[in-house]
Lab assay of single mutants.
Amino acid sequence: MDVFMKGLSKAKEGVVAAAEKTKQGVAEAAGKTKEGVLYVGSKTKEGVVHGVATVAEKTKEQVTNVGGAVVTGVTAVAQKTVEGAGSIAAATGFVKKDQLGKNEEGAPQEGILEDMPVDPDNEAYEMPSEEGYQDYEPEA
């Protein structure tokens, strides 16, 4: 019985440690998101679009440190934060509304985080759909 109880105690310690790591990862992701939003706020009209992409990228980098179902929630929060940063930029006159959601080359930025393969159960990952990809044929 002692062996059984000791095993359960060790398992509990492992769960607590994993929860603490997840909590730490979420806190880091939130900190990076805040950094990115402050970065966007300090940019001029020309830099705002690039700044919004930076927020998304920093958040995406930190999301990889967070495991399990938390990833889905962090990704949703990050996307809403990026959308909010863009709205703030438009409201303050840093950028025109028609410039939001495009990178410096004018290509749409939507789907940055949505296409990231995420499995809350950590069982399997699927690649994003290939609808947006084109076949590449090298020139002879």
Rank of each mutant, 00 (worst) to 15 (best):
M1T: 00
M1L: 03
V3D: 02
F4C: 06
M5E: 01
M5C: 00
M5T: 01
K6R: 04
K6F: 11
G7M: 06
L8C: 01
L8K: 00
S9P: 00
S9Y: 05
K10R: 05
K10H: 06
A11P: 00
K12M: 05
E13R: 01
V15I: 09
V15E: 00
V15Q: 00
V15D: 00
A17Q: 12
A17V: 03
E20H: 15
K21W: 04
T22Q: 01
K23P: 01
Q24P: 15
G25M: 14
G25W: 02
A27D: 03
E28D: 11
E28R: 11
E28K: 07
A29G: 03
A30M: 13
A30F: 05
A30R: 03
K32G: 01
K34V: 14
E35L: 15
G36L: 02
V37Y: 00
L38S: 01
L38Y: 09
Y39E: 03
V40Y: 14
V40S: 00
V40I: 01
V40A: 08
V40D: 00
G41D: 00
G41R: 12
K43T: 10
T44L: 07
T44E: 01
K45W: 15
K45G: 06
E46L: 00
G47I: 07
V48I: 14
V49D: 02
H50S: 05
H50K: 08
G51K: 10
G51T: 13
V52K: 01
T54I: 15
V55K: 01
A56N: 06
E57P: 03
E57M: 08
E57I: 03
K58L: 08
T59S: 06
T59R: 02
E61D: 03
E61N: 02
Q62R: 07
N65H: 09
N65I: 06
G67M: 01
G67Q: 11
G67N: 01
G67Y: 15
G67E: 02
A69Q: 09
A69S: 08
A69G: 05
V70G: 00
V70P: 02
V70Q: 03
V71N: 02
T72K: 06
G73H: 08
G73L: 14
G73K: 11
A76T: 13
V77L: 12
V77K: 03
V77I: 04
A78W: 06
A78S: 05
K80Y: 06
K80E: 03
T81M: 11
T81E: 05
V82H: 06
V82F: 08
E83T: 11
E83D: 07
E83V: 01
E83G: 09
G84R: 09
A85W: 03
A85E: 06
G86T: 07
S87Y: 13
I88P: 02
A89T: 07
A89G: 07
A90K: 09
A91N: 14
A91D: 08
T92E: 08
G93M: 07
G93E: 07
F94Y: 11
V95Y: 08
K96A: 14
K97D: 13
K97Y: 10
D98W: 05
D98N: 12
D98L: 11
Q99T: 09
Q99W: 12
G101Y: 11
G101C: 08
K102V: 07
N103K: 02
N103V: 09
N103Q: 09
E105G: 09
E105F: 09
G106T: 11
G106K: 12
A107C: 07
P108G: 13
P108Y: 03
P108L: 08
P108H: 07
P108M: 08
E110T: 09
E110Q: 06
L113W: 03
E114K: 07
E114I: 15
D115I: 04
D115V: 09
M116E: 10
M116Q: 15
M116S: 11
P117L: 05
V118E: 07
D119V: 13
P120W: 10
D121E: 15
N122L: 11
N122Q: 14
N122E: 06
E123L: 09
A124I: 03
A124W: 08
Y125H: 10
Y125Q: 08
E126P: 08
E126V: 02
M127V: 13
M127Q: 05
P128E: 13
P128A: 14
S129L: 15
E130L: 06
E130F: 04
E131R: 02
G132I: 11
G132T: 05
G132K: 14
Y133L: 11
D135K: 10
D135F: 07
D135M: 14
Y136H: 07
Y136R: 09
Y136S: 11
E137C: 10
E137N: 07
P138G: 11
P138E: 11
P138N: 12
E139V: 08
